[in-house]
Amino acid sequence: MDNALVASHAHTHEEEHEHVALPQHCHHFETEQQQREAGTFGMWLFLLTEIMFFGGLFFAYLLYRNWYHDAFVAASNQLSIKLGAINTAVLIGSGYFMALGVWAAEVRKKGLLVLFLVITTVLGFVFLGIKYVEYHEKWEKHHIPGEHFDVSEFVNPQAYGLKETPLAPDMAQKTQVFFSLYFAMTGMHALHMIIGIGLLFWLIWRANRGEFSSGYVAPIENFGLYWHFVDIVWIFLFPLLYLINRHPGS
């Protein structure tokens, strides 16, 4: 046999690792480290995909914001900065507990891991709840794009008790573009949150069975990356949709 091709490979499991091989080690990886690196690398690539996914929306936002600046300013004033800020805090909090969860998995503390994951989930739900309140308000104000969209609040803000400069009717129509993007962007973000919460339930179940308490932390670590990414998207959405060009007194 040709020694170059099938020479016995030095890196066998027994020699490389003192400890017992993890049950989660997949046979097609040479080493556990290779498996973990591959997982992390794959997750980063997936996040790159996600960046491109949201990138399309951000590009549309920048374009229209440039075109319809006044409408975007007026419409963004209709968003509740208070609820947005609370949600930002909630999300950062949930990201913090997610990071603690990764730490708990690494130090192999099962109880803490489950606790942190549960808190992360709860905060995720809080975020979605607040988002629902915000969406509901838009519904009542007829700010959801489509047939029932109503611009009267922007054309005649005084009648609604708002201290806004009225928009010309044609510009007021463009607030619909803002709200289209608002719902598309926050909706896509919320969808990512919902998927994340679904995955969290699964991870909590597995963590409770002790799967991540023996040094196998890759799923927790990779989910953490995903969860932080979702946070970061919000960190971009919040200033772009709520904060920019907000003028005092509104």
Partner: peptide
Amino acid sequence: RDAILNPSQ
């Protein structure tokens, strides 16, 4: 045309 349709701009 634009000025008739979108005068405020």
